[in-house]
Structures are given as structure tokens and as C-alpha cells.
Design a protein around this nucleic acid. Structure first.
Length: 875
RNA sequence: GCCGAUGUGGCGGAAUGGCAGACGCAACGGACUUAAAAUCCGUUUCCGGGAAACUGGAGUGUGGGUUCGACCCCCACCAUCGGUACCA
């Protein structure tokens, strides 16, 4: 096949037009202040999730999303928009560093090589990016601003009263006036407890194989997401970002976004809001108290024991002499468990009695305090009241250890005086009616919750609370190939560098292998680490997410040396088309793998920058679409090990970039998972060849010349109808991102003309324009060829205005009506489009086939849908 | 377990209350050709009847329901894929 003559000369003209577009900057977007900026043009920002430039090159999965955005970008330009359609590189990251270690090359070298390859591949598909705006997260001119944003986080705090971030300087002033005599150490400790970027000694996910800590999000089933290496918990001092302060806004501000509901739900679940109450339990023979969080305060009368997380600080304080050894042993055992073991053993509960008792505040009952690893230190207060009758985990634990179970919620409202005191046969988690619960008895669960919460508040024993699953974001990594922190240390005290010292660039190092300890590779660059006599540089680097948190902003003003984004550019590009406050990115397309992580982190940074007055919108991405995964031809996920990976390069070599683009869009709905088919590519390739031959034919010498069948002539009503129906359908389908059906309609249109002896040129003036966003090279070439021969082919096809359709051509005088008897089709008739209901019904009743169906039956009802159908119901 | 998505010919899919299978692939038949490729024309959901134009029946994962009418709306279930997992 590959040695065969191509059905149209794409190898020549595709390269030609790619070069032309690039040289002439045909798709440059202009910024406010540019000489050619036109303020009257509406703006449209259409963005891809920029790739990590891996050594494998571009994947057909990338091409799918990128083609979709490219079609929209080209379509919007043709509709008069100033379109921002940029591309860049998320080029920091572990694979580059590991490859560098393996081959002994500097990651910057391999990264640059990979970027060059990706750029060449993308340009070889004819994507209409504004290449003047290309950015890379690894460029010091870029990460200077990533570090700058970190400084903003470091120098800010979240004010719950205003529900927004504010500069830390305001807090310093406030604190100094409130506590003028506070010591410097205490003052610093207070500030550090408020900063949005802070250092904390926390149990982290340490991956010995990778020599780094990982975010919770990067750990899958107890293994690293990258490489699948085992991950263990260990406490380490790490940089954290206080994303939890934004939990509520990250949920509520999703509302105005035009995102798939399933993705919003994924984010909501990840943040995991739950409403309930906090309650204090006294400890018998001790001054200490245990604070617990519960979503079911109505079940307080059913709390028959308590559980502390093994790491809970109260354990040492309350433990009785006799239990010390046993508890110590249990804690040791739990501590050595990896996350994997913890989940593996989730079936069997384990725990141990501390010997201490708490007092249930509602009934003064003494209940035992246990420790168990099914209670997590990181959620709520790290302690629970156990209500085995109404919580499955507590039920399992109580059953296993023989602890009492008391029913306090009944499915049915209790009838007077028949409260059963027997332990229930199974766990009842649903809502119902309070029983055995003193002042709550008889109340429905929601009311009982309410009443108990009020009771706790009145007695000062607790209060209504909201808890989130979301944890603060672990923001440091022990890697070389990442953004260094703009931070120095004086002993145990950190301090931020001045903005003027940015960027902080990694030192050139021969050896950036992991140290095998918790110490990052940068620590080995002693000269670099030594900042001054007293100060040492921070040696951790930022995670890969950092650079991708704000790249969409940099694209708006990529060359600005004085600001991360210019104010004017921000106001122009970063504001939504439909809303001033939401979503400057009008359309964002990428894979679901970023549904929680990247999108949550980017939203968080965006909100902080908004709060601090640097941005004018609260949300970055107005509309989000996830493209579906492309499977291999064997219906399996593409992977090197399966050997079913399809490379865009080979497809282009054989069928051209237009065919690749068109096939990716013709496969099926963008958001759906679908398998690759070589035959399918050939199908769209044939279609493109047919379009080519509408205008061209081969002469004796085998050269392509303009077809003599092409004539300046009137279209027949039938042809007008097809052409205008096609404009309509393609326009509507592109707006809906329903590219597969848009292509199908264009195929219908081409089939209509392909076999005609004489072909009207007007048809090509329309078709080449509406096909241009999908197959830009072929249409550009034909447009140019026809320029000399016919009028109306001036300029570039890709810079034409989008055609409009006339509704008049779509309607015919007569419409086909379906005649049904009892829902079964009897006949189809043609009838005037203006026929009344009555005359339509009359025509149906007098139809011979309908009459046949009515014989010997009684007409019960006649349903007439004008211009569509008549259904006669008989008995 | 929980949450979400999907289920239509041999295959990818179309139609989202009104002619199920648009468009494409594959297959089969034909034209062109010394031959092949390419191209063009035709047939193609399944089962049955007919030499044929045709004609009878069934049909959108399964079972129920709403409706004159359901791939589409409602209820229950099954399967596949994805997310998540002791979050009190």
C-alpha cells in the first residue's frame, strides 16, 4: 500500500501548507496593545491539556483531543473570533529524570529533544496553534512565575471571616496589635500555622524505589502511580499547601461551570463534604476529654464504646498500666503495616482495649475506649464514638470483640411502650425513628439529629461541624528535575526569598540520582545549597502539578517579563465569554485522568490569585470536555506490552494528516471510548480522495488537472437542498462537538455530486469552507488551485468566513407522511407542507392500504402529527 | 461494597417520544481491465413465503410499566468499563 501512488498528492501539499501557515503566522492571535488588535472581535480561548513530552512521541489519543480543539479553533476564526489556541510542554517530571539517570544525559537535553519531536509531530498534523505563544514549564522564564506564585501562597493566609485569601502582612499587623508582647518565636509559629504554603511533619507516602514522597493522589492501591513501586507511610518534614481551606469553595463554585456532571461529582466526592456534629466525651478518672466527629448525632444513646486512631496523642495519657505493653505492641504492628497491607486486611478488624473508660454525656454511661486502625488519624478528630447497631464498621468490630450493641434507631415509628431492648439481628444504617434515646424517642432521624446537635450546643458539649475528606496538598518532592523552592533556611526556620531573586534555577549537576535517603538530590550540590554564612537553600523541588496549575494564564501573555500575565491581557482573555467571573478558557479538552488532580489544583491556585487581586475570575475553565480513550484494534487498551499501539506517524505516512484527523473525528462521539480501525482510516481517506476528484482529474501523463466537469452553473433545487442542509447540519454539529455526524453529512453531500457529469463550482465554494476545519490541507490546496480558474477563491480557505444556509432551500412543497394503524406502518404519502390537520387526516382515511387495515374495525382515536405522521387507533 | 458511564446489524456508529440501523467498514454481485489494484454501480438486521416486483413475522442487554406510539421516559435486574474504598 505504501509504495502505491497516493489517491491525491497529500505528501506534497500537506507539508507545503504547514510551512505556509507557520511562515506567515496565519493563526496568530493578537493581544490588546498589538498593532493589529481589533477590539470589536469577540475572543475565544480553546485549550488542550498540554502534554508531557515523553520519549515515545505523540499518541493517537493525544491527536483526538487536539483535533477536536483545532476544529473548534478554526471554526471560531471563520466565524469572526479572535481565537487563542496555544500549545506548550509540561516538561518537568519523573520519567525525564529517570531516563537521564539511566543514560547519563542531563534531563534538559532529553527534554529538549522530546519537545522538538512533539512539536514536529504536532505541526505535521496541521494544528493551528499560535506557535509564538509556546511555553515550557522547565524554562526558567516560565518557572520564575511558578516560584512567584509559590511566594504568593507563602505570603498569604485564608481568612475564614471573609472566606478568601489575604496577604499575610495584614495578619501580622492585626496580630501585633492584639498580642504586642508575643515572642518572636511564637509570632512566627502563629504565622506559619496560617500560611497557605507551610512546612509540616506529616506521615507521607514515601516511595523508596523512586526516592521521593508522593501525594495521596499519586498513590494507587498502595503503589506509585508512576512505575507501580511500593509506597510506605513515614513521617517527614514537607511543604504543604492549605487547599483544605478552599474545600467549600472548590465544591460550591463548581455550580456555574459547564462541565460534565460526572466530573463535577468526581471532584465533590474527592473533597468529600459531610455534615454532622462534634461532641466531647469526658474520660473517667482523668481531666482529658475525647472529641469525636459524627454524622449521626442522633445515635449518641447507642454509643457503646469509643475508638481512637492508633497514632492519637491522647492514647499515652489515658492508657492504664495493665494495658501498656499490649497497646505498645499493637501500635508497633500497625505502624509497620504498609498502605497495601492495611487495605488488604480491611476485611478483618483489629484493635486493642486501652483500659480507660469515657463517659457518654447523654446518659453518664461508662464506655470502654479502644484503639483500632480502622479509625484514621487524618479524618475528623481521629477518634470516634462507636454505634455498632447503626454503623457497619462498628458492627463488625463489636461483633468481633464482643462489645455491646444497642439499637437506637427503628425502621418503623415505635408504638407506645413496646420498646425492644434485645440486641438487633443486623446493622441498620438507614434513617428511621429514634428509640431507646431518652428525649429523642419517636423523632425521625433528621429531626433527632437536629435536636441532639442543639442539645450538645446548649450544654457546651459540642457543636455542628462540617468535615472534608480532602487533605492538604503535599507539595515537595525529592527530585532534581522540578522547580526549586524560592526558600532558604536558617537552622529550623524557613524564610522566603525576594521576588527579585527569581528564578531560582537548579544547579548544574553531574550526579542527580536519588540519595537513597529522605535527602533530595539537590542536597549534593553543596555550593548551591550554601546561600550565605547563615542560610541554606531548600533542596526539595515542587511536584509536576505546579507548572500545569497556571499555564493557561501564561499563554495569554507568554512573553511578559514583568508579570505572570499582563493586566490587560488578563482582562481580555481570562474573562468568560458568557460570564465576567467564570472561566476565561471557553473550552478545555483533555483526558479524564486529570478529572480530580490537575483540575482541582489549578482551580485552587486560580482562586488564591483571584482573592489576592491578580485575576478577575473565580474559575479558570468554563467548559470542559473529556475525550474518550482510544483502544487498540483488538479492543484492548493500547500499550507497548500488548503491541497494539498505533502511531500517528505511520498513519500520516500512508494516508496523510487530513485522513488521520478526519478518522479520529469520524470514529464516534468524542467522549466515548472506541477502538482504532485501520479500515476506518481507509474509508475517510477514500472520502477525501472523492472530494479531491470533485475538482480534479488525472490526465494521460498522470498529472492532476482541474476537472472539465466543474462549471459555473445554477444548482438544481435538489442540489441546493443538499448543500444548504449540509451547511446547517455541519454548523450545528460542530457547535455540539458532534464531529462524526458532521462528517457523515458531508459524505452525503459529496456523494450527491460525485457522479454528476457537470458539477457546479458553487458547491465547492461552500464545501471547501465547511470541510476546512476538519481537513485543512486538502481544502487549502483545492482552494488555491481553483483561485485562478473561478471567482470567489481569494485568500486562504482557512481564513474565509463561515457560510450561512437559507432555510428556504431546505423546505419542499410536499412532505412525506407516515400512515400507521395501531402503530404499524401501512403506507407513506406525499402531502402539501401546509396541509391542515383535518386534510391530513382525511388523506390518511382515504388511503387504500389504510382502509384495508380498518376493515371490520372501529376507529377509537386518530393521532395527527402535522408534517410527520397519522396514527389511527382501532379496536 | 459505594458512586458514575455504557449496552442498537458481522464491526464503528446514527436516530433521544413519531419510518430503527443515517454515514462508514466488512461481505456479496456487477461494470471497467489481458489481469490485478484503484474507481464506479447495486445488495446487505434476522427468520419465513415468493421466479419476481413483493410479502408475513420478530427485533435496540433482560423483565415489567407509562403512552395512540418507546432505542428514547419510569421501575427492577444483568453485563462491561471507569472511579473510589474502613472518611465515622
Amino acid at each position: 500500500m505504501s509504495t502505491q501512488r497516493k489517491q491525491y498528492p497529500f505528501p506534497e501539499f500537506e507539508a507545503k501548507w504547514q510551512k505556509h501557515w507557520l511562515d506567515k503566522k496565519s493563526f496568530r492571535a493578537s493581544n490588546p496593545g498589538d498593532a493589529d488588535f481589533d477590539a470589536k472581535k469577540p475572543k475565544y480561548y480553546v485549550l488542550d491539556m498540554f502534554p508531557y513530552p515523553s520519549g515515545d512521541g505523540l499518541h493517537v489519543g493525544h491527536v483526538e483531543g487536539y483535533t477536536a480543539t483545532d476544529i473548534i479553533a478554526r471554526y471560531k476564526r471563520m466565524n469572526g473570533f479572535n481565537v487563542l489556541h496555544p500549545m506548550g510542554w509540561d516538561a518537568f517530571g519523573l520519567p525525564a529524570e529517570q531516563f537521564a539517570i539511566k543514560t547519563g544525559q542531563h534531563p534538559r537535553v532529553t527534554t529538549e529533544r522530546n519537545v522538538a519531536r512533539f512539536r514536529e509531530q504536532l505541526q505535521g498534523i496541521g494544528f493551528s496553534y499560535d506557535w509564538d505563544r509556546e511555553v515550557s514549564t522547565t524554562d526558567p522564564e516560565y518557572f520564575k512565575w511558578t516560584q512567584w506564585i509559590f511566594l504568593k501562597l507563602y505570603n498569604s493566609w485564608f481568612d475564614p471571616a471573609q472566606n478568601k485569601a489575604r496577604p499575610i502582612s495584614e495578619l501580622i499587623t492585626q496580630r501585633k496589635s492584639e498580642l504586642p508582647n508575643e515572642s518572636e518565636t511564637e509570632h512566627r509559629a502563629f504565622l506559619d500555622s496560617k500560611r497557605l504554603a507551610f512546612v509540616s511533619e506529616v506521615p507521607v507516602n514515601w516511595c523508596p524505589e523512586l526516592g521521593t514522597v508522593l501525594a495521596n493522589e499519586e498513590v494507587v492501591d498502595g503503589k506509585s502511580e508512576v512505575g507501580g513501586f511500593p509506597v510506605e507511610r513515614r513521617p517527614m518534614r514537607q511543604w504543604m499547601l492549605r487547599i483544605t481551606d478552599y474545600a467549600e469553595r472548590l465544591i460550591s463554585e463548581l455550580d456555574g461551570l459547564d462541565w460534565p456532571e460526572s466530573i463535577k461529582l468526581l471532584q465533590r466526592n474527592w473533597i468529600g463534604k459531610s455534615e454532622g456534629a462534634q461532641a466531647k466525651f469526658d474520660i473517667a478518672d482523668s481531666a482529658a476529654e475525647i472529641e469525636v466527629f459524627t454524622t449521626r448525632p442522633d445515635t449518641l444513646f447507642g454509643a457503646t464504646y469509643m475508638v481512637l486512631a492508633p497514632e492519637h496523642s491522647l492514647v499515652d495519657e489515658i492508657i492504664t498500666e495493665g494495658q501498656k505493653a499490649a497497646v505498645a505492641e499493637y501500635r508497633k504492628k500497625v505502624g509497620s503495616k504498609s498502605d497495601l497491607e492495611r487495605t488488604d486486611l480491611a476485611k478483618d478488624k483489629s484493635g486493642i482495649f486501652t483500659g480507660a473508660y469515657a463517659i457518654n454525656p447523654v446518659n453518664e454511661e461508662r464506655i470502654p475506649i479502644w484503639i483500632a486502625d480502622y479509625v484514621l488519624m487524618g479524618y475528623g478528630t481521629g477518634a470516634i464514638m462507636a454505634v455498632p447497631a447503626h454503623d457497619e464498621r462498628d458492627w463488625e468490630f463489636a461483633t468481633q470483640f464482643g462489645l455491646p450493641i444497642r439499637q437506637v434507631v427503628a425502621q418503623e415509628p415505635p408504638t407506645s411502650g413496646t420498646v425492644c431492648d434485645m440486641p438487633p439481628a443486623e446493622c441498620f444504617k438507614e434513617i428511621g425513628y429514634a428509640v431507646n434515646s431518652g428525649f429523642l424517642d419517636g423523632l425521625k432521624t433528621p429531626e433527632a439529629k437536629q435536636k441532639m446537635a442543639e442539645w450538645l450546643e446548649v450544654k457546651s458539649l459540642g457543636k455542628r461541624t462540617i468535615n472534608y475528606k480532602l487533605r492538604d496538598w503535599l507539595f515537595s518532592r525529592q527530585r532534581y528535575w522540578g522547580e526549586p523552592f524560592p526558600v532558604v533556611w536558617a537552622g529550623r526556620q524557613h524564610q522566603a526569598l525576594e521576588e527579585s531573586e527569581l528564578p531560582v534555577v537548579q544547579p548544574e549537576m553531574e550526579d542527580f540520582k536519588p540519595t537513597g535517603t529522605a535527602e533530595p538530590p539537590l542536597a549534593k550540590a553543596k555550593d548551591w545549597v550554601r546561600y550565605s554564612d547563615k542560610l541554606q537553600r531548600e533542596t526539595n523541588t515542587m511536584p509536576q502539578w505546579a507548572g500545569s496549575c497556571w499555564y493557561y494564564l501564561r499563554f495569554c501573555d507568554p512573553k511578559n517579563a514583568g508579570r505572570f500575565i499582563g493586566e490587560e491581557a488578563e482582562r481580555y482573555w481570562a474573562q468568560g465569554t458568557n460570564s465576567k467571573t467564570h472561566g476565561g478558557v471557553d473550552l478545555y479538552i483533555g483526558g479524564t485522568e486529570h478529572a480530580v488532580l490537575h483540575l482541582l489544583y489549578a482551580r485552587f491556585w486560580h482562586k488564591v490569585l483571584f482573592d489576592l487581586g491578580y485575576l478577575s475570575t473565580v474559575e479558570p475553565f468554563q467548559r470542559l470536555i473529556n475525550q474518550g480513550i482510544i483502544l487498540g484494534p483488538d479492543n484492548q487498551k493500547m500499550s507497548k506490552s500488548r503491541g497494539n499501539v498505533v502511531s500517528p506517524d505511520t498513519v500520516i505516512a500512508e494516508f496523510g494528516a487530513d485522513a488521520l484527523r478526519l478518522y479520529e473525528m469520524f470514529m464516534g462521539p468524542l467522549e466515548q471510548m472506541k477502538p482504532w480501525s485501520q479500515k476506518g482510516v481507509e474509508g475517510v481517506y477514500r472520502f477525501l480522495a472523492r472530494v479531491w476528484r470533485l475538482a480534479m482529474e488525472e490526465n494521460q501523463e498522470g498529472d492532476w488537472t482541474v476537472s472539465p466537469a466543474l462549471k459555473e452553473m445554477e444548482m438544481t433545487p435538489r442540489q441546493l437542498k443538499v448543500v444548504h442542509a449540509t451547511i446547517k447540519k455541519v454548523t450545528e454539529d460542530i457547535e455540539k462537538l458532534s464531529f462524526n455526524t458532521a462528517i457523515a453529512q458531508m459524505m452525503i453531500c459529496v456523494n450527491e455530486f460525485a457522479s454528476s457529469e457537470e458539477r457546479p463550482v458553487e458547491m465547492l465554494r461552500v464545501l471547501l469552507r465547511i470541510l476546512s476545519p476538519l481537513a485543512p490541507h486538502l481544502t487549502e490546496e483545492l482552494w488555491e488551485i481553483l483561485r485562478g480558474k473561478f471567482s470567489g477563491f481569494e485568500g486562504l480557505a482557512s481564513q474565509q468566513t463561515w457560510p450561512t444556509y437559507k432555510e428556504d432551500y431546505l423546505l419542499e412543497e410536499e412532505v412525506e407522511i407516515v400512515l400507521q394503524v395501531n402503530g404499524k406502518i401501512r403506507d407513506k404519502i406525499l402531502i402539501s407542507k401546509n396541509a391542515t390537520k383535518e386534510s391530513t387526516e382525511e388523506a390518511a382515511m382515504s388511503n387504500p392500504k389504510v382502509k384495508e387495515g380498518l376493515e371490520g374495525k372501529t376507529v377509537v382515536k386518530v393521532v395527527v402529527v402535522p408534517a410527520k405522521l397519522v396514527n389511527i387507533v382501532v379496536k
